[in-house]
């Protein structure tokens, strides 16, 4: 009776796209950890360089595969599937951007970052760990389509984004030392956090509101 499960409108196709997207999130966590550890954790950039770029290429390939599958799926199944496919089209971009920001973070290893320069610099290490855990949790939430915990998750995302904004503001006001690497790191961290947030947003808001989970805060 196995052949029966392959027939029918639902079939395996969306599940396959879903799995590939989860793989992108997993790779996103891997590449973020690698880059952030090279910048903040003392891992030698030379050691992880090849792995980091290979992971980024894999993320990009998966994004393209998913896009192709989305076009095929939409052509076969028609308009009924468009909302889900449009959401996925947007989400793969978010997952791909995590890879890009990880590379930006890795590029900062060329100039280096002094963690003992001040409290904001020192706070980057626990923030890095929180982001890494966010990526793991986002993967789990998306896999289980856990809408209840998604809202809780998004409020944490907003808090972390605020923390990054406050740090950038404070660092920019400082004078007497070079705060640019720390500012850029906070900025990149915030972008990674936002992209993870966008992914989880898809669990709780309709298509047109995608990416706008922090809108009420902006209006205040």
């Amino acid at each position: 009776m196995h052949w029966l499960h392959r027939l029918g409108p639902e079939a395996q196709s969306l599940n396959e796209i879903h799995s590939k997207f989860l793989q992108m999130i997993q790779d996103g966590r891997h590449i973020f950890d690698a880059a952030a550890n090279a910048l903040l954790g003392g891992t030698s950039p030379q050691v992880i360089r090849n792995d980091l770029f290979e992971t980024d290429r894999r993320i990009n390939r998966t994004e393209q595969e998913i896009r192709r599958q989305i076009v095929v799926h939409g052509s076969i199944h028609g308009a009924a599937t468009f909302p889900a496919l449009l959401v996925m089209m947007s989400l793969v971009k978010d997952a791909e951007r995590i890879g890009d920001y990880a590379k930006n973070i890795f590029d900062l290893t060329k100039v280096g970052l002094d963690l003992e320069a001040g409290p904001r610099e020192a706070a980057l290490v626990p923030l890095k760990d929180k982001i890494s855990k966010l990526l793991v949790r986002a993967h789990g939430l998306f896999e289980r389509q856990d809408t209840a915990k998604a809202r809780e998750f998004l409020s944490e995302v907003v808090e972390l984004e605020d923390e990054c904004d406050a740090a950038v503001e404070e660092l920019l006001r400082l004078s007497g030392r070079n705060t640019s690497p720390a500012v850029l790191t906070y900025r990149y961290f915030k972008r990674v956090i936002s992209h993870i947030g966008n992914v989880v947003t898809s669990l709780v808001v309709p298509l047109d509101k995608l990416d706008y989970f922090d809108e009420p805060r902006d209006k205040q």
């Binding site: 029918g8 409108p9 395996q12 076969i76 199944h77």
Partner: peptide, 16 residues
């Protein structure tokens, strides 16, 4: 078309 849409999609994805 409804019945074979799954295998059809699979085949098209593989044929690209």
């Amino acid at each position: 078309r409804t019945l074979v849409s799954g295998p059809l999609e699979h085949a098209l994805n593989r044929s690209l």
